[in-house]
Amino acid sequence: MSAALDLSGAPAPGAGTDPVARARALAPIIAAAAPRIEGERALTPEVLDAMHGAALFRTLLPRACNGEEVRPATFVRLQEVIAAADASTGWCLGQASGCSMAAAYMEPEVAWEIWGKDPRAAVAWGMGNGLAEVVDGGYRVTGTWRFASGSKHATWVGGHCRVQERDGTLRCNAEGQPIERTMMIRKDRIAFQDAWNVVGLRGTGSDTYGVAGMFVPDEYSVCRDTEAERRLHGALYQFSTTHLYASGFAGVSMGIARGMLDEFTAMAMLKTPAATSRAMRDSEVIQNGLAQNEAKLRSARAFLLETLEEAWEAVSARGHITMDEKVLIRLAATSAIHRAKEVVEWAYHEAGATAIFQSEPFERRMRDIHASGQQVQGRSAHLEVCGQHFLGLQPQARFI
């Protein structure tokens, strides 16, 4: 272990304090910056300073890298708070936090170099078709990847690749499926394309990037969520990155819905719609709808948090996660994304013409919830996989 790693036992900034409380303290700063974040398609320097100062990017990072290793349910609650202030900020935080879990699978010295020694470390990666050819000491990497949320403030970038052996065959797992290995590359070595022209979550700056024939040393590559490469065995790292991405992005959706519902309630207390003398708050339609949507959002939230807490307690006791727990996390997370979208759509519609103005707090949330719901974690197909499990079948799905 290097001399630098000998310092890794130092507590993370904010360690011992509630990360959700730290997030609440920053929410007004983030909310005030939201229009600029969307306009510039990037988190502002002031927001980044505040988030790094509160160590919000380090909640899922190993303690050995000055992280906190918080419980998944705590991470979801943190995501809700940030996303209620600005969805793009919550999304970037969720993406970088999920990436940081790879530190538990890497050589300790390399993990420290990427995440530990830099208090402003953040990793971004996206989906694509990369190929890593085996060469002496590592890999020759070529590929293009999209959807690199948070790439503008990232310090390192990952590229997910299939691995091609020297004889031209693809490296496969025990089931005969090609494996995916992630290549970790300093951001300043990467070429980016300004391709993020979208309807919602504009502030994530989820641009496209690529490399051609770049050498990556073997120790700077990782197979995430594989038992053979797991070096840290705490309860958090028995959960997969998929579990935290699914739950964390569900937290973003629920945060958007929470913010939307709160803004709608505040408006309904004061607004009298055009062509009527009856205040909005006195409408039975609004009263009933508000109650129904509060119940819908709170029920979805309770299901996800309960599922994560029960899984955490079980994993902490037995040392591993079961298929039952994996499926319930998937079901609860995807359901929360769907229910949150329904809540936002109801509030947007009932807000009337007020909702269509950029100066009001509704239209951006409407766009953001629909952008977030299109991401892979919100796919309706996930529910089919859960149903297969409940019926005694053996679903083969990547996203459980």
Rank of each mutant, 00 (worst) to 15 (best):
A314K: 10
F264Q: 04
T276Q: 00
R301T: 05
E309A: 05
P273I: 03
A336Q: 10
L244G: 00
G251F: 01
M280N: 01
T265V: 14
M267E: 09
G319A: 14
I329C: 02
H338D: 08
I321W: 06
Q287C: 13
M269W: 15
G255V: 13
T307C: 06
N293K: 11
R258P: 04
S247E: 01
D262M: 15
S253D: 13
T322I: 11
H349D: 12
M254R: 04
L305E: 05
A295H: 15
I329T: 02
A300P: 07
K341E: 06
D262P: 07
E350I: 11
A311W: 00
G319W: 13
L290Q: 13
P273N: 07
F249I: 06
S283C: 08
S283A: 11
R258C: 12
R318W: 13
T334F: 03
A268M: 04
I329H: 00
H243G: 00
S277H: 05
E342A: 13
K296S: 07
K271C: 08
I256W: 00
K326E: 12
M260N: 07
T265A: 15
S240H: 08
Q292H: 10
E294A: 05
A336G: 10
E310F: 03
E294I: 15
H320K: 03
T272K: 09
I329G: 00
Q287E: 13
G259Y: 08
Q292D: 13
R301E: 11
F303N: 12
E306P: 09
M280R: 01
A300H: 03
L305C: 03
S240L: 08
K326V: 03
L297Y: 02
A295E: 10
D282G: 08
M254S: 06
E263W: 04
A302W: 00
N288Y: 14
K271G: 06
T322R: 05
G255H: 10
G248Q: 01
V343R: 13
S247G: 02
A257V: 07
L297H: 02
Q292E: 09
K341G: 08
V343P: 13
H338T: 14
T322G: 04
F264A: 10
R278I: 14
T276W: 01
A347F: 06
S283E: 07
A317P: 07
A311Y: 00
R281I: 11
I286H: 01
G289D: 08
A275G: 12
D282E: 10
E325D: 14
D282R: 09
E345F: 08
A275H: 14
A257F: 04
S253R: 08
E294F: 11
K341Q: 09
A275Q: 15
G251P: 02
S253E: 09
V343E: 08
